[in-house]
């Protein structure tokens, strides 16, 4: 058995893998000790929390909502008519929630800009997103029902025309 094969058996990957990871961990330690100076516990909590925020908080939350929207008897022909606008609206809130929910008390004092209005604008954007989705649904229904409407018109015309 060659040395490289023995190494792979014991380690599970090539020596290059180990060297690259060790180089990265050394850089992490160099920057990490500086990152942790000061409020070490707070920073560590934020770091690990940031790693888990999506996977253990956001994902279960939006997955449950998405499943709920697909329950049998849901009123829409495709869940995407509600999924897409809800996703975009939720995304805007996720990024801009401190301003939308007025969590930044010193915003006006600092910038000279009005703190109100973010919530209203986010709600109006949300309304526009759902309205656009509704319009899309209407247009698609109209197109889908085209053949049936043309057939009905033809029947009416045929009935009304004396032979």
């Amino acid at each position: 058995m060659s040395g490289a094969t023995a190494f792979r058996r014991r380690y599970g990957a090539s020596p290059l893998h180990l060297l690259l990871v060790l180089a990265s961990f050394a850089l992490t330690a160099y920057a990490g000790t500086r990152l942790l100076k000061g409020d070490a516990v707070g920073v560590a909590l934020w770091f690990v929390g940031a790693a888990l925020l999506h996977d253990l908080v956001l994902l279960p939350l939006y997955s449950v909502l998405d499943r709920g929207a697909q329950l049998p008897g849901a009123p829409w022909p495709s869940v995407n008519y509600v999924r897409v606008p809800a996703f975009v609206s939720g995304l805007l809130l996720l990024v801009w929630w401190p301003l939308v929910l007025r969590r930044v008390g010193h915003y006006t004092a600092t910038t000279g800009l009005p703190a109100g209005g973010f919530l209203g604008r986010w709600l109006l954007i949300t309304a526009a997103l759902f309205a656009a989705s509704a319009a899309t649904l209407l247009v698609r229904r109209w197109h889908a029902s085209g053949p049936a409407r043309r057939a009905a018109r033809r029947r009416r015309r045929d009935r009304g025309t004396p032979r």
Binding site: L20, F25, Y30, L35, G38, G42, V43, L45, T110
Partner: peptide, 30 residues
């Protein structure tokens, strides 16, 4: 959070964002 002036993170933004970037980029390259 910093661009919204919501300074709830545990320390100075410059320190956290700068050193955090170097911790991140090492793992990113790997």
């Amino acid at each position: 959070l910093n661009v919204q002036l919501h300074y709830i993170f545990p320390g100075s933004f410059y320190t956290l964002h700068f050193y955090g970037a170097w911790v991140f980029i090492g793992a990113f390259v790997v």
